[in-house]
Design a protein around this nucleic acid. Structure first.
Length: 566
DNA sequence: GCCGTTTTCGGCCCGACTGTTTTCAGTCG
């Protein structure tokens, strides 16, 4: 509601920088940083949220109580959807759109196209032939990459990793880092930003322009090149000197809103912060490393996944940043398949060896239960598997293997096998794999019933979503978190890049509610173990401290934790 | 529309790039 208000108000005010628009955007960030359920707050409690004043608080209550907001309805009538759609065209902003509507009565895409055909745009004040052609070209490729097109992180990250590795081999290059929403580990990525430290910018520009993944060069200058990939993703590469690298990383990692707040902090001290450094007049205060920039602003280093201006700067300033979970504190993996599961692709021995190579202290083997057609295992198969796990255990004495199962949560909340058989497992993850379209009430009951089962230790991939492909199930989150909190069942943070389920905002709510987390890879092949790093970054985005994550416990404590559930 | 270790009124981040202009406006990140 607030995002739409901001969007329509930018049209109404004829400026995306209008203070009213920014106030709405600030309120969005404040609310994102609120760890509880905003719908339950009254006017006074709402105003206490940073960025929310009397007017916005009233509109939030109005929205929750009535489902509509009069101000928003007014704006929707004044600016109908077909008109607002035109803002998605790259290069066309609110000012130009206002002119087009006032001068040429353009109301939708067809109006705009025909105005371009009769070359009517070029005679308008402030526009010209070039702008007309630019807008025409933008419309042509609108379907592929409009302003709001976003790519799932599962597609963007491999592209960035590959390109960064190649650019590191270009002569003169000292370092390459992908920045932007990708470094912040957002679920979807607008474009890939690479910041390169190099003494030979032209070499880097040449390498990018001539790269086979570049289908089209959007723009290329001395230090900045933008290209479109064949998949329609924009990649921006920016070259800076080694001395500017830290300030550039801060600047290009964002978020925009985090940067604004940092610059405000600089202004408060009479300084200037930009992508080249932190300055006191002509004097450079900090620029080489990110740490030095933050330190000069009296802040500890803020990990990129937190940089959304949703409370991290205030927390950092007060020394209240959580002791975030990190990869080196992970002691085991608790959602793990071998080719015993129909969709598994590596053998048990290979999978266990891969886990041992990572130095894990414990590992739960969680093959699919019998209810999952094709992929599941019968009781007899499970018993044989248990024996095989026992013999593999002998080869890895330092790592405790848990005989486990990924139970399937049926439509009614029922689980595989029977209670006694389930209780023989050392560790069970229970997950939804079907019936995605039940009502929120039904899904909630289903989950609550599953977590009430004494064999269940964790709820796997909470919503079953695939980012950009399939929405997750609808649930009553408050009820689910309460259920987890009461039962002591852990919430899984699934590290598969196309899942990242539960979402980071749910993780943040869960942490605030005292729910225990487990970060798992849901590995089906030895190459999947690297997902642990993704799960950790994603959990950081949800403000998860090491103490919130059960699989940071050393082996002894973890075994205690598991048996307390049994 | 929000906010206050100078403030309840008067501020509100910064720069690159492009195009349309002779000093600036719009868009973008």
């Amino acid at each position: 509601m607030l995002a739409e208000l901001a969007h329509l108000t930018s049209l109404d005010e004829g400026s995306p920088q209008s203070f009213k628009v920014r106030a709405y955007e600030n309120a969005i960030h404040g609310i994102e940083g609120y760890p509880g359920n905003v719908a339950g707050l009254d006017q006074k409690e709402l105003v206490a949220i940073k960025g929310v004043g009397g007017s916005i608080a009233t509109r939030i209550r109005e929205y929750i109580d009535t489902g509509t907001v009069a101000k928003l309805d007014e704006l929707r009538i004044k600016y109908p959807a077909p008109l607002v759609e035109l803002l998605k065209i790259p290069g066309l902003g609110p000012k130009t759109l206002k002119t087009l509507r006032a001068e040429l009565n353009i109301q939708n895409l067809d109006d705009l196209k025909s105005a371009i055909e009769r070359e009517a745009l070029r005679d308008l004040p402030g526009l010209g032939k070039t702008t007309e052609e630019k807008i025409a070209k933008s419309i042509e490729r609108l379907g592929m990459h409009g302003k709001d097109r976003r790519t799932p992180i599962a597609e963007a990250l491999p592209l960035a990793e590959g390109l960064a590795a190649e650019l590191e081999t270009v002569p003169g290059v000292a370092a390459v880092t992908w920045c932007g929403s990708l470094r912040r580990f957002a679920e979807t990525i607008g474009d890939v930003d690479l910041v390169v430290s190099s003494v030979a910018a032209d070499e880097v520009m040449k390498a990018v322009v001539g790269h086979p993944m570049a289908k089209e060069v959007v723009g290329s200058g001395g230090t900045k090149t933008s290209v479109l990939t064949h998949a329609g993703m924009q990649v921006d590469v920016r070259v800076v000197t080694a001395n500017q690298y830290g300030a550039a990383l801060v600047y290009f990692t964002g978020s925009k809103s985090h940067n604004v707040a940092l610059r405000q902090r600089a202004i408060d001290r009479g300084w200037l912060l930009n992508e080249y450094g932190l300055f006191d007049g002509e004097d450079l205060i900090a620029s080489t490393t990110e740490e030095s920039v933050y330190r000069a602003l009296d802040l500890p280093f803020i990990p990129p996944p937190l940089r959304e201006n949703s409370g991290e700067i205030e927390a950092a300033a007060d020394g209240r940043l959580p002791d975030l979970v990190t990869l080196d504190r992970i002691k085991g993996d608790l959602h793990f398949h071998s080719d015993r599961s129909g969709d598994g692709r590596s053998t048990l021995e290979e999978m266990v060896a891969a886990a041992a190579a990572r130095g894990y202290e414990y590992l739960a083997i969680t093959e699919h239960g019998e209810d999952l057609a094709i992929n599941g295992s019968s009781r007899e198969e499970m018993r044989a598997h248990q024996r095989r796990i026992g013999s593999v255990q002998e080869a890895h004495p330092a790592m405790r293997l848990l005989y486990g199962c990924e139970l399937n949560i049926g439509a009614d909340g029922n689980l595989d096998y029977d209670r006694d058989f389930r209780l023989e497992y050392d560790w069970c993850v229970a997950s939804v794999h079907s019936h995605f379209d039940l009502s929120a009430d039904q899904q909630t009951q289903r989950l609550l019933k599953a977590m009430a089962d004494p064999a269940v230790n964790a709820i796997g991939h909470l919503t079953g979503r695939y980012i950009g492909r399939r929405p997750g199930i609808e649930i009553n989150l408050d009820a689910v978190l309460e259920g987890l909190s009461i039962s002591g069942v852990a919430l899984e943070v699934n590290g598969a890049l196309d899942r990242l389920d539960a979402s980071s905002d749910v993780i943040r709510r869960a942490v605030a509610a005292g729910v225990k987390l487990v970060i798992s890879t849901d590995s089906h092949h030895t190459s999947d173990l690297k997902r642990m790093a993704y799960g950790v970054s994603h959990a950081q985005r949800g403000w998860a401290a090491a103490g919130d994550v059960a699989n940071t416990m050393p082996q002894v404590d973890f075994i205690d934790f598991v048996s307390s559930r049994r």
